[in-house]
Design a protein around this nucleic acid. Structure first.
Lengths: 234, 234
DNA sequence: TTGCACTTGCGTACAGCGTGCGCAGCTGCG
DNA sequence: CGCAGCTGCGCACGCTGTACGCAAGTGCAA
């Protein structure tokens, strides 16, 4: 009732009520939808109505859906932490790699977008992330820091992408990860039959699949870091 | 005029003329479109009319567009070669990695599909590829062949995905790779300014970008293989 | 105080998408 | 000869991204 009266009060109320549809709020809400429902469920109409706005209103703040995705990607890069260079470069790189992986698994759509559009983004968070990563390898004393960066980043993105895709499959199935593994096992065994070197492994359902994945990631990373260490002492 | 007469001849002519819309021919044509126009340009309607068929006719042979993409992925995995295990496991793995990369770059949509759907495919070509890869690491004498597989595969897929995404960007820009690099350089420099460890490198436009990419790929792979070699001698 | 430029949001509309459904015609078997 | 089953197609539904033009509100200039 009082709300209907147009007055200073109403206007003051309105500001905290509706953040006025800014670019930042759009990106934030987009990430929420992406995380909750996946990339193919994000539509401009749905996003608009979640912000109490029409679909086309969003286009005042964002040129295109693709640009919105770019902004979301850069935003998410801001969640990745890279430590300041310390005495143990391996620990630092490992921490950065794990943070990358954790972020990619928290936002499984990240990999899809990156795979389709590449890293020609140049957003501020992405640049800062690259810079901090470069600092790590430079401080460690590598003759060619670039090589360290792209080798580690290649491994990390590849591994994270595969994992994220799997998690997406799990999410879409509605089951837990362990359940889906169990359900797919017969088919996998059938498919692996006749191939001498494929096991479709593991009857021991003791170990948590998520733990297994993280161990795999760490093991592979260790291999990469060992390889890189060789280029240091030489 | 003669063509209008319904007869054995007409029917016999028809067979080589129209391969009758089989699953295989649909997948083949889909790959052609995907290669030529990219993943977001593939529509069931377009695919149908290219095969002289209505859009919905395809659904007699393929349950859904997503399934069609899975079939295309497996088909393309058939193009990847993995050598039989020889005396030099590093050479063998390198050859397999380069073939994977070459295939992924020839079909840049591959990475997008894999990133979205993961490797829960179990198609025959994919299984055969994995098996041959496993054979390589087993023959090399690794205690844990799996680790070699997923480490190398992680690096290779990550690197190839990034490259494929970049090539997609290049293709969409309409320019050559070198031109696009030159065009993006100012923006990249601007973005890199203020970051101590980022160069936005290279004024020497002498070297072919494609060659640079391949060298990077090989260098990183060398690092990974060096790391793996350490787990062998131990 | 008045007026004007500018920003912001919205409604409508268009072309295109994946695909469910039911009908028509051809093929091969009894 | 007739019928079952497979193949292809036209239509229709609900959805998509987004171009366009109008209305309302805002802040600065005169």
């Amino acid at each position: 009732m009082a709300a209907k009266i147009p007055s200073v009060w109403a206007r003051e109320q309105r500001q905290p009520d509706q953040p006025a549809l800014s670019r930042a709020s759009i990106v934030r809400e987009a990430i929420t939808v992406l995380d909750a429902e996946g990339i193919e469920q994000l539509s401009m109409r749905k996003l608009g109505s979640r912000l109490n706005a029409g679909a086309t209103s969003l286009y005042r703040h964002v040129a295109t859906k693709e640009e919105l995705l770019e902004l979301a990607v850069d935003e998410v890069f801001g969640e990745m932490t890279v430590p300041d260079p310390g005495p143990d470069w391996r620990a630092d790189v490992t921490a950065a790699a794990l943070s990358f992986r954790a972020t990619a698994l928290r936002h499984p759509w990240l990999s899809s977008v990156l795979a389709q559009a590449g890293l020609a983004y140049l957003g501020p968070n992405l640049m800062a992330h690259s810079n901090r990563l470069a600092a790590l390898f430079a401080a460690a004393g590598f003759a060619d820091p670039d090589r360290g960066i792209y080798t580690v980043l290649g491994y990390v993105t590849g591994m994270s992408t595969t994992e994220a895709a799997w998690l997406t499959t799990v999410a879409r199935s509605g089951a837990t990860e362990a359940e889906l593994v169990a359900r797919l096992l017969p088919a996998a065994r059938r498919a692996a039959a006749g191939y001498a070197h494929l096991s479709a492994a593991s009857g021991d359902d003791e170990t948590d699949p998520a733990e297994v994945r993280e161990t795999k990631f760490r093991n592979g990373l260790e291999v990469v870091l060992n390889g890189l260490a060789l280029t240091l002492t030489r």
